[in-house]
């Protein structure tokens, strides 16, 4: 028998590259995504090592040195109207943005995955779950977030809650679609015939096979979440002054648009760079996972 297996084995092309390595390879080919990845890495490092790379605290006022311009001595990005170091506040804001983005996307994904799995796997739940999802879809996202904040009050935590809720329907739809196609696969039937529980089938066999679209969704969603957090904070619905949140910084800086434009422009550039990076990485991941690529290998 072993000889039989051997001859068959020779017919199989050796594929040592794991799927992840292959995705990484085609991601690296995309110049724009590499740029995005580098920017994200820099932002992440800035957020983690904020105390090490800044000389001042984000809330440290110095009323003798207000509204210093870019390139001033000791203040590489100048100071604001209270003499706070803009670079410290930007670096501090990177942490806030990433944290809010990650947690709101994370909670949104968890909620969406649970709803999507239930709707896709149990036909009886499908109707009701998807109608709720449709209901959430009917609201423009930022309006939904404002509604939630109007009910819960303005704070960064409530922004996370609002954006999580807003992320749920999209994720639920993606997961449901994947579950519908995967649950008809023979390996799921095979698990049923050996007596596996629904729980085991859902989390051990179906969920790992719908990660690809979720990664793309999660990355794109990060961009939206960070942008929305800033937008809500700018409107005064999210982080409140003096929090060093980028959106709130723009709102505070716009009063000095003529005398010290960098107070509004620099946080704006920070938001733009971050959102742009997550978007191009999302695009790159999506292209890397393109159906033209053999997903099974």
């Amino acid at each position: 028998m072993s000889t039989v297996a051997e001859t068959e084995n020779n017919n199989v092309e050796k594929k040592n590259n794991s799927r992840l390595a292959e995705i990484a390879k085609s991601l690296v080919k995309n110049k724009l995504s590499v740029f995005g990845l580098v920017i994200i890495a820099l932002i992440l490092l800035t957020a983690i090592f904020t105390p090490l790379i800044t000389d001042y605290g984000p809330y440290e006022q110095n009323l003798e040195n207000t509204k210093l311009g870019i390139g001033s001595e000791g203040h590489m990005l100048g100071t604001d109207n209270y003499g706070r170091d803009v670079w410290s506040r930007i670096a501090h804001g990177a942490g806030i943005s990433l944290l809010v983005g990650l947690s709101s996307v994370g909670f949104g994904l968890i909620g969406g995955i649970i709803l999507g799995l239930l709707a896709g796997y149990y036909r009886k739940l499908d109707g009701i779950v998807m109608r709720i999802v449709d209901l959430l879809f009917a609201f423009p996202g930022i309006l939904l977030a404002m509604l939630v904040i109007a009910m819960l009050g303005t704070s960064l935590v409530n922004v996370v809650i609002a954006i999580s809720i807003w992320s749920i329907p999209g994720c639920a739809r993606i997961v449901r679609g994947s579950v519908l196609s995967i649950k008809r696969q023979e390996y799921i039937l095979a698990m049923k015939t050996v007596g596996a529980s629904d729980w085991r089938i859902l989390f051990k066999h179906i969920l790992p096979n719908c990660t690809a679209p979720l990664i793309v969704y999660g990355t794109m969603r990060m961009a939206t979440a960070i942008l929305s957090t800033s937008a809500l904070s700018y409107l005064g619905l999210g982080a409140q002054p003096p929090t060093a949140e980028w959106g709130a910084m723009i709102a505070a800086g716009q009063d000095f648009m003529w005398e010290a434009p960098h107070l509004a422009v620099i946080p704006g550039i920070a938001i733009m760079l971050t959102v742009f990076s997550f978007n191009v990485v999302g695009d790159g991941v999506r292209d890397a996972l393109d159906p033209n690529m053999d997903l099974n290998n």
Binding site: Q185, E186, Y187, A190, H205, N209, N296
Partner: peptide
């Protein structure tokens, strides 16, 4: 027990 038709679809690729 059951043996399935499609040997490519009857094993979890992950």
């Amino acid at each position: 027990q059951m043996i399935f038709q499609d040997p490519f679809a009857s094993l979890n690729p992950r």
